[in-house]
């Protein structure tokens, strides 16, 4: 088992924001986490990678590649983050350093974890740019984030996350800030890269159709708890929890409405 999360609980003061979350993730498998804002999706992933603010009280257990991550010293965690676990965040403009050329940012995890030189790192950054479908890597690596479009920035985010071939990629609403046409491109890119690398994926989103298009299993979160965890197919056929049923119903209504407009009735 690549990742085992057991009874993960996060508290801020007297408020429990993640409440007894447990799930497993095998190597090369994919899990979606869905729920509305404030349901604890993001905090769950931040707890896994040890990026919660210091005021948070965390309990339970997170085992990754046989190693307990909760309570791990910052230095030891740094050896895992960006190396064995890659991360992509929602808003690439805030996730990237505005003062550093993107080539150097892509080279950073390689320099930190594989000890390559800046020159070698930049060379690898160019290869990574090509892999994430950025044209003209030569120019891209010399650009600052503000000089790139939203889609290009998120591709850079992916290049950084995947630089060290992580066993696990955590993507938190990676396409929410993007236009639909760009979202489609980034999703299909992420899909093929994760498959090529054989990485596992945790994909956090509020958007059920997006999650269903890229993962095999879905965990539905509400008020800090996982209220249902099932394969995408069985969830759609027969969701057991009322909240999951509501989510699916809302997605179906919207999908049917759109289908009604785009497909001719006789087809």
């Amino acid at each position: 088992m690549l990742l085992e999360v057991r009874n993960l609980t996060v508290r801020f003061g007297s408020k429990t924001v993640v409440d007894g979350v447990s799930f497993d993730l095998e190597a090369s498998s994919r899990l979606g986490i869905i729920g509305e804002s404030g349901s604890g999706k993001t905090l769950t992933t931040l707890a896994i990678i040890g990026l919660l603010p210091e005021t948070a009280k965390v309990s339970g257990s997170v085992t990754f590649e046989g190693q307990e991550l909760l309570g791990l010293a910052d230095r030891d965690f740094s050896a895992i983050r960006g190396n064995r676990i890659g991360m992509v965040f929602q808003e690439p403009l805030t996730a990237l350093n505005p003062l550093m050329r993107v080539g150097k940012q892509i080279a950073q995890p390689l320099r930190n974890h594989q000890g390559v030189t800046l020159k070698e790192g930049l060379k690898r950054a160019m290869e990574l740019c090509a892999r994430v479908g950025l044209p003209d890597p030569d120019r891209i690596i010399r650009s600052y984030p503000h000089q790139l479009s939203g889609g290009q920035r998120q591709r850079i985010g992916l290049a950084i996350a995947l630089a060290c071939s992580p066993a696990l990629l955590i993507a938190d609403e990676p396409t929410t800030a993007l236009d639909v046409t760009v979202q489609k491109e980034v999703l299909s890119l992420m899909n093929s890269l994760v498959a090529e690398e054989g990485s596992s994926l945790i994909f956090v989103s509020h958007d059920l159709p997006v999650v269903a298009s890229i993962t095999e299993r879905v965990a539905v979160m509400q008020n800090g708890e996982i209220v249902e965890l099932a394969s995408v197919n069985s969830m759609f056929q027969d969701a057991s929890h009322e909240y999951s049923r509501k989510l699916i119903q809302a997605a179906r209504t919207s999908d049917a409405e759109f289908g009604h407009f785009t497909e001719s009735p006789s087809a």
Binding site: V180, K184, L208, A212, N233, F236, D255, A256, G259
Partner: peptide, 13 residues
């Protein structure tokens, strides 16, 4: 392009 990019649900046509 806009129309084909809208994510659709699996198995609901």
């Amino acid at each position: 392009r806009l129309i084909t990019a809208v994510p659709r649900l699996p198995g609901t046509k």
